[in-house]
Amino acid sequence: MLLRKGILFMLLFTGLYVLFFAVGTRVRLNGTPIIYRLGNVYHWKGGDAWQRYHEYDPQLRHDVVVLGSSHAYRGYDPELFARQGIDLFNLGSSGQTAMNTHYLLDDLLSAENTGLLIVEVSKAYLESDGLESTCELVQNIPMERAAVRMALSLRDPRAANLLALRWAMHGQEPIYRSENYTAKGYCRHTTNAPADLEHRHTGRFDPLPDQVEHLRSIIALCAERGIPLVLVSHPIPPRSDPERHRLFAEFLRGLVAGTEARYLDLATALELDDQQHFADHSHLNQAGVERFVPALIDSLTAHGLAHPMAPAPGTAIGPTE
């Protein structure tokens, strides 16, 4: 009796649930499905994430693949690398954390399609729970397995909602496209940071244990698959919190010690200007990127990490088969 009632109740609930997503994704308000008005987790399908992951083809080999947060897709310009003969694809996404990187890496990258993996790391990469990035990626990446794993990492009903939205939107065109998106995953920003921008100094770095575990898994997975891995911290504005960065860099150096991964800390290596080279409190603008990328390539070369991506003259970059 109880079982029958329970099944009946769950059937009714499932019906209402499916109806909600069917209506919410099809009824539009000002051109966008009304479901997007109902909560933060219902991330719009489209934008640079959709463009990036639909442009990326795992069958093609790239000398360098970059993963990480918006620091990655706004800081590593494939055009600047191409000038040095390096083919780079940027797979960064907004608020990407170690958890997101781990699942993307697991689904997409191998020694065959990746010469060198750069993971752009900043404090938030290990301090945030990855919700922002998960919401965006679950709606926009074509890889089913990674999307499900990211959604399930939330460990609450939001996981079901994200996946239900993903599947309900299946086959629909993206709602919008990013104007800053150029190609190969990169977004170009040319604006300067405002002069009165405030930088908060907390002097603290509090990594989440789960994210640290995911970073360890990334290092282990790269070693297992034979993908050379470099963790890079790109420049930070001179007025930002130096103590916080020191703690973070120290932590990362400890983490990579004894592993095959390397950590390149370029946070304060260049003399940059808070306004001229940054778009806001942490992201480089194009002028900053143009200073940073050559310095990064020099640094990679100096550390002997440029080898896997060194193009042999006349080598065509293309499918690995």
């Binding site: 109740f9 909600f20 909560g39 939330l154 609450d156 909602n161």
Partner: peptide
Amino acid sequence: SYLFHGSLLLLLVLFGNYGE
């Protein structure tokens, strides 16, 4: 009763602010 409790569950799943 089913509809009421089903709607409660639906609101809980869809409109809850999760994050413990």
